[in-house]
């Protein structure tokens, strides 16, 4: 069965870049959300076992999503992909339960390394 993967970013351009950077042979079923609230809905429907999450978004930001996932104990593994490269941002999301932090502009290699490291994808 394909892995339900959710890409969350307020920019459709950014979502496209993330999807383009995914490993070609990865068996995933991709859903997309443009803000945190939409993301939580999709996660609770089982559409985001793995979540690639932006931080700076309207309605509900990435921090809010991480807090809700924890509070509601939702089954989602989160990798943050953000342009907010302040070390404090990375520390905060990890404290909130994010598995990894990948900087924007997104580099395909970096994303692949993270997916490999956490056993989410192997070539």
């Amino acid at each position: 069965m394909s892995l339900p993967l959710l890409v969350v970013d307020d920019s459709s351009f950014a979502r496209k870049q993330v999807i383009k950077a995914l490993p070609k042979g990865w068996d995933v079923e991709i859903s997309q959300a443009s803000h945190g609230q939409e993301a939580l809905e999709l996660i609770s429907q089982g559409k985001g076992e793995v979540v690639l999450l932006d931080l700076t978004m309207p309605v509900m930001d990435g921090y809010g999503v991480l807090e809700s996932i924890r509070a509601r104990d939702l089954p989602a593994v989160v990798i943050v992909i953000s342009g907010d490269i302040q070390p404090e941002a990375e520390a905060r999301v990890k404290k909130l339960g994010a598995l990894a932090f990948v900087k924007k502009p997104l580099n395909t290699e970096n994303l692949l390394t993270v997916l490999n490291d956490f056993g989410l994808y192997s070539e």
Binding site: S82, G83, P87
Partner: peptide, 9 residues
């Protein structure tokens, strides 16, 4: 957004 992130850092 990406440019702003660097400035913010």
């Amino acid at each position: 957004n990406v440019a702003v992130g660097r400035a913010a850092d």
